[in-house]
Amino acid sequence: MTDGGATRLTRGREVLRRRLSLSGLQGRLTRLRARLPMILQAAIGAALAWLVATTLLNHPLPFFAPVTAMVCLGLTYDNRVRRVVELTVGVAIGVFIGDVFVHFFGSGVWQIAAVTVLAMSLAVLAGAGQLLMLQAGIQGVIVATLVAQDGASFGRWLDALAGGLVALAIAMLAPGRSTVKRPRERAFLVVSHLADILGNTAEALRQHDAERAAAAMQTARGLQPELDDLREAASEGLAVATLAPLRRRHRSGLLAIGAVIGPLDLAIRDARVLVYRAEVALSVGESVPEAYVDLVDELAMAAQHIGDELQAGRTAQEAREDLVVLARHSTWGTRGASLSAEVIRAQVRSTVVNLLVLTGMTREQARARVPHTRDDLDPGPQRAQDQGSEG
């Protein structure tokens, strides 16, 4: 045996030894425990789908019913309800097109190609994503090849539909806990990333670091996909909490998370403008007063406070006082401040309004807490106290 062959053999033995080691076995057992609920749901879904198709539809061999149920319930819990619907539609389209072609044109090479093109095209016209489109093509090919001659034309798509409906019912009635927990976790991440962006922008202004400001701008642009994920997670979580009896107690919390998405979206847009003007100021050498940099830093800390409250499962009302104090500080401009500096101050104030709305205020209430001038302080407790001391 050559030296290279001996080396490969030694490595193979080492890999096998690691795979058979106790730690490797424990890791596989841990993964099995984590996936066991999904495995059990797939098994129950397959059995129920077969039962529904044989008893209610009176189909003697409903192959596609348990297959569709297993495919749908084998999805991860993220966006599961939406994907179950998507897969069900895709499978049903593919099976129906396959049935039609086999019935009228038989099975063969050109029929397989035609079924694939037609099923995938119809799935796209139905608003399919890539997953639905591929499933439509795959199921059409299965009908046109493996089960083309069993004489059950036009019934198989009903089996697929029955399997998908069983899977949807199970996904709704026994969803994973992550479905209702994920929106709050995503909201915390988005707000925390917003706080990081603002904090990095303030530090870039202090250090006159244009590259750091540019990096913050790049990160700010990447917040939109995160916000889209949050919106999708909140929508699915609310659907599950509305329809699943075991998750209904989470409905009010999910409604609260859904309510923050709009003002959070606006706050992120404001922050992007703020970071952009900071990047411009550093690039062209415009001066930004230290007081304005402090405003950006305070805004970052207020945003992080909001994120911490969301992560703890509380409303963000605790962070209101931070924002109101910041609003008062932002009222005073600095004589001779550059255009970029004044835009930064304006965007701080606009972001404060949107974050106050995020804490549960109406937009009118939030605007009232952000004074327009030094002589127009917010109508909060501090002003009443000041007026009382003057009297």
Rank of each mutant, 00 (worst) to 15 (best):
V191E: 12
L146Y: 07
L282T: 04
E236A: 07
M361N: 13
P62Q: 09
G199N: 04
F188C: 03
A303M: 01
A114S: 05
R212G: 04
L168T: 01
T351L: 09
D297T: 02
M133G: 02
L230Y: 06
D378F: 10
V343H: 08
R13C: 07
V81N: 06
A337T: 08
A114Y: 01
E232M: 14
Q317A: 14
G137H: 01
D196C: 06
I170A: 02
A384I: 07
W110H: 05
R367Q: 07
L246D: 04
L48Q: 05
P62D: 02
D294W: 09
R18W: 10
N354F: 03
V275M: 11
L189Y: 15
T76W: 09
L134S: 04
A187V: 01
I306F: 04
V85E: 11
L118A: 00
G313S: 01
A126C: 10
A210N: 06
A136C: 05
V15D: 09
A174V: 15
I44C: 09
L168C: 14
V84Q: 04
G106K: 09
G222K: 13
A384Y: 11
L87Y: 10
V280K: 07
P225L: 11
R269S: 12
A42Y: 06
L295D: 02
R231N: 05
D322H: 15
L61T: 15
A195C: 06
L264A: 01
A187I: 01
D375Y: 14
A113V: 00
A281P: 10
E290M: 10
S21Y: 06
A119M: 05
V124H: 07
L61I: 13
V357P: 00
D375R: 06
G380S: 04
V141R: 11
R184I: 01
G5C: 15
S287H: 12
V325T: 11
E290K: 14
L310Q: 07
I97T: 01
L73A: 06
I268Y: 01
V141M: 14
G155I: 04
Q26W: 14
W110L: 10
W332D: 12
A162R: 05
V240P: 00
E309L: 11
V89Q: 12
E318S: 13
L122R: 00
R13P: 05
Q135F: 09
L205K: 00
P263F: 05
L358P: 06
P225G: 04
R335M: 10
K181E: 08
W157G: 02
A92P: 09
E321T: 09
R383N: 13
R277D: 07
L118F: 00
G24W: 11
A368E: 11
G137D: 04
R314G: 10
S107M: 07
R206E: 08
L243K: 06
L57H: 04
D308N: 13
V81F: 11
V71Q: 09
F188E: 12
T7R: 15
E236D: 10
A346T: 09
R35F: 08
R269E: 13
A291C: 09
Y276W: 14
T54A: 08
I261N: 03
M172K: 08
Q130P: 06
S153V: 10
A46R: 01
L22P: 07
I138G: 01
R35C: 07
G129M: 13
I44F: 15
V293E: 11
L9Q: 13
L161S: 00
N58T: 11
A327E: 03
S121Y: 12
A47S: 09
L194W: 07
L56P: 13
M217R: 13
P60A: 04
L134W: 08
L56D: 10
E14S: 12
